[in-house]
């Protein structure tokens, strides 16, 4: 009962079972190839879909800490010393009000091994929204000040946030303003504040002067 090869011979009517068998085999073969092909495509598609995108793969390396703790990144250490709120802040004798509330964070920054700057400063709220430091006036500590290793510098950074977001905030600091991916970042949880305190901040009319940064004793 050997299957006749599909040679140049005309179809052999004498073996009725053979053509059916051959057709079945060929159908099976095609089905097999097709199944493999689909499986390969599906596997490739699944891999592509599962592969994390650049936002995930190149996310910053976050070091977390709390108020008063020294948080170390690759290039600098930070300690959040104090947080206060205000309806107005003053810098260079000019007052600046806000549609939300000012959050003023007092920091101590120290470079670790080489001169460095901290160019990115932002507050994160509970919803994950990010509020970068105000650009309405110069903030030298987190813009231009070159920190020297082992010489701590203290100063204040001011942020504008919506009042509803002011109760729970995290401070994020990194070296590079334009791109924080694939580099170290400090995230400091600021103490939760109840809404009545936030209301108190917004009611105070006296502008809060911002501290000019300066080196402090080692």
């Amino acid at each position: 009962m050997s299957e006749p090869p599909r040679s140049a011979n005309p179809p052999a009517p004498a073996a009725p079972a053979a053509p059916a068998r051959s057709g079945l085999a060929r159908f099976g073969a095609r089905l097999g190839v097709g199944a493999l092909f689909v499986a390969a495509l599906a596997a490739g598609g699944a891999l592509t879909a599962l592969r994390p995108n650049s936002d995930v793969r190149e996310r910053p390396f976050v070091t977390a800490g709390g108020l008063g703790e020294r948080v170390s990144t690759r290039t600098f250490d930070v300690t959040v010393l104090d947080v206060r709120g205000a309806a107005q802040v003053a810098r260079f004798r000019q007052a600046h009000d806000t549609g939300g509330v000012w959050i003023v964070v007092r920091l101590r920054l120290t470079a670790r091994n080489d001169p460095t700057t901290v160019g990115y400063a932002a507050l994160r709220d509970e919803r994950g929204r990010l509020y970068q430091q105000s650009e309405r006036f110069t903030q030298p500590l987190t813009n231009s000040w070159v920190l020297q290793p082992g010489i701590p510098v203290e100063g204040e950074v001011a942020f504008e946030v919506p009042r509803a977001a002011a109760s729970r905030l995290w401070l994020r600091l990194a070296e590079n303003l334009a791109e924080q991916g694939m580099d170290s970042m400090a995230e400091v949880a600021l103490l939760p504040v109840d809404p009545s305190t936030v209301d108190g901040w917004t009611r105070s009319t006296a502008p809060v002067p911002l501290q000019t940064p300066g080196a402090v004793g080692t």
């Binding site: 085999a25 099976g28 073969a29 095609r30 199944a35």
Partner: peptide, 24 residues
């Protein structure tokens, strides 16, 4: 695909796995 034939025995060609393997 239409003219693909099962390889000769002993050739070591890969047979596809799965339920259709029997035809292969």
């Amino acid at each position: 695909t239409g003219t693909w034939e099962p390889p000769p025995p002993g050739s070591g060609a890969w047979p596809p796995a799965g339920p259709t393997a029997g035809a292969w």
